[in-house]
Design a protein around this nucleic acid. Structure first.
Lengths: 182, 182
DNA sequence: TCTAGCATGTAAACAGTTACATGATTGC
DNA sequence: GCAATCATGTAACTGTTTACATGCTAGA
């Protein structure tokens, strides 16, 4: 239930509406934790029902400003530096790789080359973001820098690995080919 | 719906029961795609209802051997080298990092050091696996080697990043401390 | 005989996605 | 007046997890 904690955390700097949070999820949090509109509004209502936050103000067009209750702040504090991360162990890329032995080596290598290209594009996108972003604003800016560096490093590793893996497959094919032909 | 394709892929070498698959998910696939028992049996029944596989044989203790139908093989083939991977963009670690500005720098740095230690332990576990595994068996062995290398490289990157990030926070704290004191 | 492992299934709850639905207000 | 954006909500569906439930069979 990390969405819960994300919502609580976003209310720490001050009260905000569901719509405000929605925009944060679409911008700053887009690369970190995606959540559709329906989920955010639902979670806010559940959080309010559980007493972790309350509606502190109502504005025009039915706008509701939520603010953090003491219980919510406590819940967030317990979560944020709790080192236990529920290991998800679901990696779509590796699942494909696992079964790559069932297709011809050429197709398998091409698949990995495509994944390398994809990771490279992701990396370029993050570099772009790094260049355009204002890195002096808000309490979340320096954390954003850390997260972005994570993305840059991980995508680099992914590119290198995918190219290495494609090469492994090509070499194995060449190896068996030669043996078979000789 | 990747579980679907994992199940189809596992039936390529030959017919197997739900229980057989269950053991594969607990061993070879444990680091790649986890699935609980109830999900596997449910998926097998759904897959059979959809005509992607059929019960080819019944053994003792109600054992049902499933085998791949032509439609199932086609579905698998379309999936396995399809380069489009639905981007999940949900990273629990980065979500914590995003909010680390709301706790004292010492706690934030300690959190990242703990994550470095965790990634280091993961890495050691994979090295262990690499040493003990029989790397000459089955059609999935060489793919397993590629996946394992992925894990080794990613965990290395995670360790390096987490230590770097912890250092960043410590330095920022020292910096503001000095300025404030002068 | 009894335990461990084989073997399958269901029910309830929770999490997440997509699509639909509605209305208010601001600026052109 | 109209379009864009603000603003919230609900319904249906799919995917996932946890827990419970049942019975068979091989071997010590």
């Amino acid at each position: 239930m990390s969405l819960r904690h994300a919502v609580l955390g976003l209310l720490i700097p001050g009260p905000a509406s569901g719509y405000d949070l929605l925009r944060v999820f679409r911008t700053s949090l887009a690369h970190v934790w995606q959540a559709p509109q329906s989920q955010i509004y639902g979670e806010l209502n559940r959080l309010a029902a559980d007493g972790l936050l309350q509606v502190s103000e109502r504005g025009p067009r039915g706008r509701k400003l939520y603010s953090l209750a003491d219980a919510g702040r406590a819940e967030f504090d317990a979560w944020v530096t709790n080192p236990d991360i529920p290991e998800h162990r679901r990696n779509e890329l590796l699942l494909h790789v696992f079964f790559l032995g069932f297709v011809p080596p050429d197709r398998a290598a091409a698949y990995l080359t495509a994944q390398a290209a994809h990771a490279r594009a992701m990396h370029a996108g993050l570099r772009q973001l790094q260049a355009t972003q204002d890195w002096d604003d808000g309490p979340l800016a320096s954390q954003g820098r850390l997260a972005l560096e994570y993305g840059l490093r991980i995508t680099t590793t992914q590119v290198e690995w995918a190219e290495w893996a494609a090469e492994q497959i090509r070499q194995a094919r060449a190896g068996t080919g030669q043996v078979a032909d000789t």
